[in-house]
């Protein structure tokens, strides 16, 4: 008895987006099937992993997350370099948390100076992630875009509140925007339309569908991402045919369970392995939902995901 596999016919294709510039530039996207459904389509460009670097010394990280970077956490450039040199990072994501007006509120100039150092320290593609305050991000990301003209940074989150301002500098100074919307397929589509109307070329748009951690709302992101991918591939929704970015490291490592020590949570096993597995499992699910770029923290979690990617994409 021979089974005839019922195949989905895909009418769409995810756009290919070039990340960064020069020899180490990467390309993501290009899928013509649901993630890893290689029996009925292509996924010739691998999803990529960006390693997190913070612009100020983290204060509330559990030892498991801190240990691999303990010697560099106070120097973002050295941190980025360690990620690339020691942990083989293919991308860096600079998280500009210290610019948050509700926190340290560092100025755009300071943020730009830090960014400049990181950009000069490594040659891999770099994501610049703001503090998620639309007004402050506008100021900060504009300055960075100007100072790093032509480097094709991935800058975000770009929201409905600031897409004009950030979109404009992205066009003018040649960067890629990360279009961020709160877990809603129609809002994601609308923002992509607006960016297109503004003049941001299709080759410079990535979708951030908003990411939650395992156990903390991951299911919402998972389904919205599945819906976005479905619309893009099978429903001719051209304005959703962009690769997706998931900023998951910080979401996972701020959860209670990723932070608890063995004493605080004796039933939860080894704290390092637990944190690593929570991050990797979150990443794994996001990959299945359609993520093209993962922003992650722990080198071991990243190693596991790379291993899984190799298996899933094996020829």
């Amino acid at each position: 008895m021979a089974l005839e596999i019922p195949k989905v016919s895909y009418s769409g294709k995810i756009k290919e987006i070039v990340l960064g510039k020069g020899d180490k530039a990467l390309t993501v996207g290009g899928e013509t099937s649901y993630p890893f459904y290689l029996f009925e389509g292509q996924m010739s460009l691998k999803p990529r992993i960006a390693m997190e670097v913070y612009d100020s010394t983290p204060e509330d990280w559990p030892p498991a997350a801190l240990e691999p970077f303990a010697d560099v956490v106070s120097d973002p450039a050295a941190w980025a370099k360690k990620c690339v040199d020691t942990y083989g990072a293919e991308m860096i994501a600079l998280q500009l948390v210290s610019t948050d007006p509700n926190g340290e509120n560092r100025s755009a100039e300071e943020a730009a100076a830090v960014t400049k150092k990181v950009v000069e320290a490594v040659d891999v593609p770099i994501i610049i992630w703001g503090c998620n305050n639309a007004e402050k991000d506008t100021e900060v990301l504009r300055k960075i875009a100007e100072d790093c003209a032509g480097r094709n940074l991935m800058i975000g989150p770009v929201t409905e509140a600031n897409y004009k301002q950030i979109g404009a500098v992205a066009i003018g100074y040649e960067h890629t925007v990360i279009a961020s919307t709160p877990i809603d397929i129609n809002l994601a589509k609308q923002l992509n339309i607006l960016l297109g109307n503004l003049g941001v070329p299709d080759g410079r748009i990535l979708i951030d569908p908003t990411t939650g951690s395992l156990g903390y709302g991951l299911e919402y992101c998972y389904s919205v991402m599945e819906r976005i991918r479905m619309a893009a591939l099978t429903q001719e929704d051209e304005r959703l045919q962009f690769p997706m970015v998931c900023n998951l490291g910080k979401e996972v490592w701020k959860t209670k369970e990723a932070k608890q020590s063995r004493e605080e949570a004796p039933k939860l096993g080894d704290p390092v392995k637990r944190g690593v597995l929570m991050e990797a499992a979150t990443a794994q699910l996001l990959l299945l939902a359609g993520a093209d770029i993962l922003i992650m923290r722990h080198p071991e979690a990243i190693g596991l995901i790379k291993d899984m990617l190799n298996d899933l994409l094996a020829a």
Binding site: L214, G269, K273, R274
Partner: peptide, 14 residues
């Protein structure tokens, strides 16, 4: 172990 079962249970719950 707690560290592998707990993430899987969360995964399944989600």
């Amino acid at each position: 172990e707690g560290h592998n079962v707990f993430p899987l249970l969360l995964d399944s719950l989600n």
